[in-house]
């Protein structure tokens, strides 16, 4: 697991039923591209987050296939529909098999 990986997620805590909310996510990760060389000329092996998903109460919002061209500390912004009270689940999948997860609850008044 890449060290110091930490997600940040911004989701409004409340919404009305069926409302479209803006979601922002940021996670600390070097996204080593596999294109760089170290000081002795050896290629630094690729080590990236290769997939990001966001689901709400088990239903998919977005599923992103990520390549080495995504910047260090990957950022995504998108819009989700909130049909009812529930949880957003965010998942990042690392090349090394690690999975980073974050959950945010939204209350529909």
């Amino acid at each position: 697991m890449a060290s110091g990986v930490k997600p940040r997620v911004k989701v409004p805590g409340k919404a009305s039923a069926g409302e479209a909310v803006t979601i922002k996510t940021l996670i600390s990760h070097p996204m080593e591209s596999g294109q760089r060389k170290d000081s002795s000329g050896n290629t630094i092996p690729r080590s990236i987050i290769n997939r990001f998903t966001c689901d709400f109460n088990g239903e998919n919002v977005v599923d992103v296939t990520m390549e080495p061209a995504i910047s260090t500390n990957p950022y995504f912004q998108f819009e989700a529909t909130v049909p009812e009270t529930g949880d957003f689940k965010f998942t990042w999948y690392d090349d090394d098999g690690s999975v980073y997860e974050e959950t945010k609850s939204v209350t529909v008044a």
Partner: peptide, 10 residues
């Protein structure tokens, strides 16, 4: 990247 949009994408 490839973005696949699910049912709940607004």
């Amino acid at each position: 990247a490839t973005f696949n949009f699910g049912h709940l994408a607004a």
